[in-house]
Nucleic acid binder design. Structure first.
Lengths: 194, 194
DNA sequence: TATTGTTATACTCTATAACTATA
DNA sequence: TATAGTTATAGAGTATAACAATA
């Protein structure tokens, strides 16, 4: 359905062993035991590494958008890390906030994800005490999604952070250029059925 | 490191049971057994469902890009489904093709992913017989990545499909507008270290 | 029969940590 | 010590399939 987006700072992980390189194959290793030097580095995604030939990629509108999105996602996640709110979670909170009595199936359709995915998303937000499932009036199968008081407070703070983040993202462009950008993006490949 | 992108048509999946709704909890179900009606539908992501209030999302440059990327990704995956080539795979093939004797670590940096991710990516491409690991001259730890003849042929065909896909994506814009779009996107939030 | 929410399962992509072989 | 490739583990996000409760 809706591809895209995933990555998110996994926070932590397990451990295990690796092996040598070319032609060789290693045996095994034992779990746990701190690493002397800091392992990886990660200074962020460089959209255009010097002296690298990107071929057709440089001519594609789609790749330009992909590059931009990767960097924006990075900055977004850092900006909202303290609340553990990721792009899909933020979108869900906003949609739930602005559209009272939303049902899970409707949320799924709006976000462009499967119903099962909406269930997991709402499960997470509920566990974070930001969203609650209320019985939907008139339909005992369904739920009415609502923000909790904490959800409203958190969304308010997170929204400020997102607006700030977005201002940073577009800081190199004038207001007019940002408007042009959004307008052009909105005109790309309209939905099949639309 | 590099967030974004994931989704991809999983192709198939398992099965299992679910339950009722509000307040109720179900028991179990047994595996296998065709479903009468077609289960889901999925007519593609609608970036703006009618009568839905998107709140701040509508004012964010980041969300405009996210919306666009979701739709482009969808179309990309459909276009290259016959070769089982996803965006990261296509990028890797192009980069390997245009930059001979590339090492895995370099590929990882260019794509903005962890080395371990590059290993899995190359593993997949190697299994598809599109890429091969050659011993790197002068460094017995490293590999030189190269396209196989089949890899070159597939990349050529896939590139044509991608170019066509990209033309479709931008078909509602003039050449000039597409150039403007790419230019504006490139000016968004430059990399921290740059 | 169709819809709503759910669970089970699986797959892609990505990450961190630790390890081997080599430099 | 540092680097290249690797494996193990983890987890977010998404998908399909099948099911119970209800409409």
């Amino acid at each position: 359905m809706n591809p895209d987006a995933s990555g998110d700072p996994p926070a932590a992980a397990g451990k295990s062993g690796g092996a040598g390189a070319a032609g060789t194959r290693r045996k095994a290793r034992d779990p746990l035991a701190p690493d002397p030097a800091g392992t990886e580095a990660d200074t962020g995604f460089d959209p255009h590494v010097p002296n690298v030939d990107y071929g057709v990629l440089d001519s594609l509108v789609g790749y330009a958008i992909r590059r931009a999105q990767i960097r924006i996602y990075e900055d977004f996640v850092v900006s909202l890390r303290q609340w553990q709110i990721t792009p899909p979670r933020f979108s869900a909170l906003v949609i739930i906030s602005r559209n009272p009595h939303l049902k899970l199936t409707e949320l799924a359709r709006i976000l462009g994800i499967a119903r099962s995915g909406a269930v997991l998303l709402v499960d997470a937000l509920e566990e974070m005490k930001l969203v609650a499932r209320r019985p939907a009036p008139g339909d005992r199968r369904a739920y009415s999604l609502v923000l909790t008081p904490a959800g409203r407070r958190t969304l308010e703070a997170a929204t400020q952070a997102v607006v700030k983040h977005d201002a940073h993202v577009g800081s190199a462009l004038t207001e007019s250029e940002q408007a042009t950008l959004k307008s052009l993006l909105a005109r790309l490949a309209p939905p099949r059925a639309g």
